[in-house]
Amino acid sequence: MASVPQARQSGPAGGAAAISLRGAALSYGDRTVWSGLELDVHPGEFVAVLGPNGAGKTSLVRALLGRQPLSAGTLTVLGRPPRTASRDIGYIPQQATLSAQAMLRARDLVRFGIDGHRFGPRLRTTGVRHRVDQILESVGASAYADVPLGLLSGGERQRVRIGQALAGDPRILLCDEPLLSLDLHHQRAVTELIDARRCSHDTAVVFVTHEINPVLGLADRVLYLAGGGHRVGTPEQVLTSESLSALYGTQVDVVRVHGRVVVVGAPDEPATPPHHPNETREADGVRS
């Protein structure tokens, strides 16, 4: 079993919050997904977002990206309302199945992270190509820079997606289930790349995951969403039988075995209505 990377010894950087939610709520029709959310994420902080299927984890990411309006409360990102296509935010989406005939190359995807927001034809400059090569090298993807994405493994594609997310030199990284379908080796590689960026550039990280153990040693705090409620705190504060039992309103046992966390007895949430497919793709709650 791969060892878990160690968390930073220093706390999050001070100063203004990179992300701030006050009294935030999100509803679909008469169903409240979460409400009363008070959360500040500071530069250099790693916040893991956990919860069962339909708890609103992906919807939170969409709100931070400016793609999903809140039902109540306020949200600011870098001191202003969230907006789409912000170069200050790097986004690593959930993995999507790609056809082996998909001809977009790894370097093309990273290039989109540099100038994909611009209108008109992209200039083929030596400087941009050099920047793309630097990014691919930094995420360990140089060997397959010119390989179509459809021919890459899941772990290789995630490295390229991280490169794309970092291409704009973001101040915030939003990671939506970046470890899905990856084996332990690639999970470790992906988390180490993200954490290296956090440590070297004081980048704020919001990391949605169904599996806390690969990031347990990295997370400064946990946001656990369930049953329309939430818990925020350090992993030691949130991932306890008492805390999660109160959140779910039923007995939930949190067991720690050889440094791993296993949550037993957490019920599934009701499925989100079909016209909100982004929520139905979320995986179940924390598990080993």
Rank of each mutant, 00 (worst) to 15 (best):
A55K: 03
A246K: 12
E236Q: 13
G249R: 12
P277E: 06
G285C: 11
P121I: 11
D220V: 09
T234P: 05
L50F: 11
A106W: 01
L174F: 06
T76D: 15
V262C: 11
R111H: 12
V264P: 03
G73V: 09
Q95A: 12
S10A: 15
G140S: 07
R221Y: 10
L193C: 10
L21I: 08
A96I: 12
G168V: 06
A55M: 04
T32I: 14
I135L: 12
P12S: 11
L37Y: 10
A196S: 14
H130I: 11
P267V: 11
E156L: 00
S288M: 13
R260T: 08
I194G: 00
V61G: 04
P121N: 07
T272R: 04
E242D: 14
E269S: 13
V222P: 01
D146G: 09
G127K: 09
S245A: 07
H210I: 05
P12N: 09
T272G: 05
A18L: 07
A271Y: 08
I19M: 09
G73E: 13
T76S: 13
F207P: 03
A271P: 01
V261H: 01
G127I: 02
W34R: 10
C175H: 01
G155T: 06
P52T: 10
P93F: 03
S153H: 01
T280D: 08
Q134E: 15
I92E: 01
H42K: 15
L50D: 02
A48V: 14
Q164N: 14
S181E: 00
Q237F: 04
D284I: 10
V147M: 10
T250V: 12
T126K: 14
A219Y: 01
G79L: 07
V263R: 00
A167W: 02
R83W: 08
T209I: 08
L179Q: 00
G14M: 04
L166E: 08
S99Y: 02
R171E: 15
C199W: 08
V190L: 02
E279Y: 02
R161A: 13
D146A: 10
R83S: 14
R67L: 15
P69W: 10
C175M: 07
D88W: 02
T209M: 05
G29P: 06
A246P: 07
T250C: 15
A72R: 14
R231D: 11
A145Y: 06
A24D: 06
Q9R: 13
A7P: 00
Q94M: 03
P93Y: 06
W34E: 05
A100Q: 12
G229S: 14
T272C: 08
D268W: 03
G116C: 03
A17F: 05
R260N: 11
G265T: 12
H42R: 15
L104Q: 13
D133G: 10
R197K: 05
D30N: 15
E192Q: 14
A167Y: 03
W34G: 05
R231G: 02
V139K: 01
A17C: 10
A18E: 04
E242H: 14
V33F: 03
S200M: 04
A189M: 12
A96N: 09
P277R: 02
D115A: 12
D40P: 02
H117W: 14
G227H: 14
P93C: 08
I162Q: 04
A271M: 09
I89D: 00
E45G: 09
S241W: 07
D220Q: 09
T126S: 15
L109M: 13
A219W: 02
L98P: 01
I212D: 04
V257C: 07
A55N: 07
P81D: 08
L216S: 06
H201F: 05
R198W: 04
